[in-house]
Design a protein around this nucleic acid. Structure first.
Lengths: 212, 212
DNA sequence: ATTTTTACATACTAGTTGGTATATTTGCTG
DNA sequence: CAGCAAATATACCAACTAGTATGTAAAAAT
């Protein structure tokens, strides 16, 4: 699968550290030293620190966020439920630790967009990737009458992703997982009014009752 | 008004620099040097860099955000319109430069909440200040039947503030003021469905027609 | 008037940061 | 197996960062 395991070990380790402390506070040399990899190897694969950042976005973060929304790719029905459940997942996957760290991508966006143009562009790509998936899904949802015809798929996609971001940001400063889940629940309620033709939370109930 | 102008000059200058580059990237000594103030003076007033940060939050940022929502304080009618217009202001005040920088408070929240506990606590205070104002206003809006009775004032306040945050974050990475205004417009549309009894954008039209 | 405290100014510094320079080892190709 | 490039190790380093240490002038207290 992968020809070079050293490079990948470096990248993975740096990513894990960066998830916790952010990019600027990442000390790549110290991280790889803990893997018994020398500074020479590090700078062999990544000429500058920014190159580590670029690679993290392209090779780890981008696939990660594509996978996150992958349930919506090329679907033609059940879209409203899938969107609802993906947001539900966001709550279920939250832990106190994760909330204190915040969302890696969102953190990077705020930290690096203004610092380095290429970094910003790469983060924008990840953002666009998600928006396009959501947009296509919402469009399909409108076609099969699961999603209200009045909504603009593109701006709704941006808004939804932005709203999730907002939940992470507030919850991080409140340092509370409960704040996060309650905000996401509030978001879901709004979407039931604004986005869905039928209430997906009830459909989910019906489905679980039917399967019981 | 203020006894010590040197301290205030330092604080103001550091704040302006921090707005642009963030807190960790702030070089306080170099900033004050450009004011012809020495390092000695700087460390006389602020023993550590964090103390500058704390003072910035308490003395500049907190009043700034209180003022931002001040139209809502102790109101008993016209609340829906005021909320709508405050959000409208957010669009009108946006410039390309501001969007690239993002919102100072939101930037600080993401940057510093995980770094220093006291910093996080102070940022939380500013957040809570805004939430309380909004919450009280929404409650009053429900009482005078301008805001739908179903909404929970506290979680709606959090969500609204978080949603604005999301608009800033996305627009910063897209590096586009247009993205910001269109996202905020989308947010307003959602609120018309979810929050208001009557459509405040139409009330605004009616008001401007009536005054003509 | 003298002591004490506040408000600054200047010079220095320990630790860190993101690297280089250079040497050595490994693995592959002919 | 010679020879060459890729991979890794080790030692060094200049710039920077957030301060200290120390000294002095002026204001305030006694």
């Amino acid at each position: 699968m992968s020809k070079n395991t050293t490079r990948e070990k470096i990248l993975q380790r740096c990513f894990e550290a960066m998830e916790v402390v952010g990019f600027e506070a990442l000390r790549a040399d110290k991280e790889v030293l803990n893997l018994n990899i020398s500074k020479g190897a590090l700078y062999h694969y990544f000429p500058t620190k920014l190159d580590i950042g670029y690679a993290m976005v392209d090779e780890i973060i981008k696939p990660m966020y594509e996978k996150k929304w992958s349930d919506l790719i090329d679907r033609s029905e059940g879209i409203a439920n899938s969107v609802y459940e993906l947001i539900e997942n966001e709550k279920n996957n939250a832990t106190e630790k994760k909330i204190l760290r915040g969302d890696v991508l969102y953190n990077l966006m705020l930290e690096m967009s203004g610092v380095d143009a290429k970094f910003r562009q790469k983060l924008e790509e990840v953002l666009e990737l998600q928006v396009r998936i959501l947009q296509k899904a919402i469009l399909a949802g409108k076609n099969c009458n699961e999603i209200k015809s009045g909504v603009d798929s593109r701006s709704m996609s941006y808004l939804l992703i932005g709203q999730l971001h907002g939940c992470y940001a507030i919850a991080k400063t409140r340092a509370s997982k409960d704040v996060f889940t309650s905000m996401v629940s509030g978001l879901q309620k709004q979407l039931i009014d604004v986005l869905y033709v039928n209430d997906p939370s009830r459909s989910a109930q019906r489905a679980s009752v039917a399967s019981a």
